[in-house]
Amino acid sequence: MHGLINRALQDFLRDAHGREAWAAIAGAADVDVRGFEAMLTYPDALTEAVLDAASAHLHTPRAMILEDLGTYLVSDPSMEALRRLLRFGGANFMEFLYSLDHLPDRARLAVPDLDLPDLTLTEDGRQSYTLHCRDAWAGFCPILQGILRAMADDYGVLVMLDITGLEGPRTAIRIRLLDMRFARGRDFSLKGAAAP
């Protein structure tokens, strides 16, 4: 698993649940408490071990932890760079949804060894869409669900999200748009890129 995903999980556990929680989880998962380097790659088993340990320590199902991680990736101030990169996807939430088809390609432009699963958006009917994740790591869809929820907030849109087929190879997220102008949303301007 790419270090970016491991590092994101580590930062989320530390920021949302405290340093002690992270230290306990890292200890239980047999991971160095200093954790992961974002630019290195680690065996998948380590990620699974951290998730299992986190689930046990926090008494929370894995999927819920992962969904919270997705929300954190967009809404936490320390992750502003990532929120901006996602907002480049479109001027409104619909354009953003359709930009997800290109998410793996975009990610590869910046980080060539970051493999994200293929995503396809289909329109089911009025204001209802399905985002299909093919051959994804089982943890990916819950993270994406959290990201979508937070991005909807970011654009000021009210949505309902459900995951189907979480245990199988054909996982999908159903997206129902309830109100495209629910709230004002957060500001985004092309200028003001995060200073290096």
Partner: peptide, 19 residues
């Protein structure tokens, strides 16, 4: 896309510098 790449590169470079 170029702007996106500039920001993505800057984020990656920051991470690499930290490393």
């Amino acid at each position: 896309e170029l702007l996106w790449l500039v920001e993505a590169k800057s984020a990656v470079t920051t991470e690499l510098k930290r490393l």
